[in-house]
Design a protein around this nucleic acid. Sequence first.
DNA 1: GCTGCTCGATGAATCGTTTCATGTATGCTG
DNA 2: CAGCATACATGAAACGATTCATCGAGCAGC
Lengths: 361, 361
Amino acid sequence: MASANIKEVARYAGVSLGTVSNVLNRPDVVSPTTRRRVLDAIDRLGYVRNDSARQLRAGRSRTIAIVVLDVSNPFFTDVIRGAEAVVESAGGMLVVCNSGEDARREHRYLDMLEEQRVQGLLITPVSDGRHKRLDAFVAHGIPVVLVDRGSGHPSRCSVAVDDVAGGRLAAEHLADRGHERIRYVGGPLSIRQVADRRAGATAALAERAPHARLETYETATLSVTAGRQAAEDIAALPPGERPTAVFCANDLLALGVLQGLTAHGIRVPEDIALVGYDDIDFAAAAAVPLSSVRQPRARLGRTAAELLLEESLEGDEHSHRHVVFQPELVVRTSSDHECAPRPGRRGGRGGGGRPGDPSRP
Amino acid sequence: MASANIKEVARYAGVSLGTVSNVLNRPDVVSPTTRRRVLDAIDRLGYVRNDSARQLRAGRSRTIAIVVLDVSNPFFTDVIRGAEAVVESAGGMLVVCNSGEDARREHRYLDMLEEQRVQGLLITPVSDGRHKRLDAFVAHGIPVVLVDRGSGHPSRCSVAVDDVAGGRLAAEHLADRGHERIRYVGGPLSIRQVADRRAGATAALAERAPHARLETYETATLSVTAGRQAAEDIAALPPGERPTAVFCANDLLALGVLQGLTAHGIRVPEDIALVGYDDIDFAAAAAVPLSSVRQPRARLGRTAAELLLEESLEGDEHSHRHVVFQPELVVRTSSDHECAPRPGRRGGRGGGGRPGDPSRP
DNA sequence: GCTGCTCGATGAATCGTTTCATGTATGCTG
DNA sequence: CAGCATACATGAAACGATTCATCGAGCAGC
């Protein structure tokens, strides 16, 4: 039951310890005959290498961990899949840990990952403040790459998407359709993304539609439920005081808003236009296909993993890099409508044609 | 940079190796004074226990792995979260691996997990045939619990949901609404679930609506894209030959079918009723809220983890158990409509139909 | 004072690999 | 044949934590 060890394999094959190890790690220095015999013994005994011992000796592991805020969020699952592809082709193993936006849980995972001396860590920390904890990793020589957080930190790499630009895209689009009363739904504002997207929207409106107003509605979480609540509050307003457009900090919120508005007979986009963020797969399949700001999710994961492996190889010579991707607006039905109160901005409808802006770098 | 080891801590604190170890593992046998001093040293030196060494000695790890078919599928993410809760409260660590329905990748992960001597394994294998690979785990004393697969295997526990019953629920519901021409969309049929759900539907119809017919449309995958394709093929039929109801093997397919039908101006549920499977969160938020067969997903994960821990504790005395949960039908708009009497379809109002969403390939 | 206990602390032995200095044939060159 | 590579194989010495038999000190009881 206890699995065989290298010593038993050596005895069975009639060779020494070191030879078996060489067969496993540097097959080329072993003569074909011996190699055959050893492989045979391994097979016969059902030997499986003990990674703990190997790591203990080698001092480092070949697993890379990614700690995400929410495994249920399609944004993260795509990031995971991107990272996975890279790690796999480098012969490593990617393990996923779910902090569930819970700082205590994140802490536990970080403790255990540190004890395991993982080769590297990809993480979207629960709070931007928790970075101190990560310094310990760096100090122990474990590279850390921040995903979609804390861009610009001097002692670690990061990948992110330009959220200010994303906010701009959404707001410019809505302004172009004549909306002057736009509500931004998202929260908590302490999350950088949430704040940045808002800042981008604000800036865009200031430039392009000085009369327009951006109201902020702060939510406690970025969930469907919170979105539904936001819609309730909009529906409770007298029709004249409602915003004509809603821009949500992510698609889950937007889907919730959509459900909530529809439940109250408020039509999207005729009564209220709606733009989400992330362009998760389900955005296109929503009750009203959802306009959304798309982020290169898989790319984010791939790049993060690449930076990590790079740092892992280069060691001390490594200089940290901060990669920022540009988002892209995907216009669908939910915002494809001229704002009613102020006709005569631009003529024909966009007709649902291929949206987005492929012109950016 | 290289982190301190237990020996340096001992020297710094002026005690022996064993004492430090005791402070870490059995604090009660160490006098408070000494304990204080050791903890202080640990703190000062930034000591982090090396799990490889610990495991090497202890012979076993405290991480439990779950290998899922697709991290992007909400079904699995909920299972993960259920399992996570249990593993966490038992003081362990759950790592998630994504096989992506790729047998080679699954194989790689299993190899590495075996080398790591994980404490246990929760897995939904890519193919029911790959079970042989898992025997090696059992032989090495690593408990394996099958999730939603291979119920009844004598040498491992399993948790599953009664898919035959689920198929029955859906078919009975549609039969009650007067449908006699139902199409089952799902595949590959080699997946037990897909086959079982179909078998349940067939059985239910035979009992309850002997005149009804269940056509099978086999898909290559259980994805939104495959669903869209299925809808294309339905739309290509002359209206008189179309099924009046579609039952999909999962919600992703159903969402795809919904999109596809809508794009062709076929109304759901008026022209075709639709029932999905899994009741993922997005089912309720779909273009037409989707009827679906709900599985107790988180419960599945929790129970699987519990069985695993149980087996892990009991060791050889353990007798394997197979837990089967019952699914539940959630009726929403997509199927909430009496089937129109035989030839006559209700005419009129083709007007409001949206041209559909061209945004994705 | 001696015995018998308890409470703490000790450190050598151990887990399974990898590494590396060392050893032993074997073949080649001049 | 001496001299010297070349090619393989060897096994002791790490790696860092845990365990366990052992020891010393303090104390109670007779």
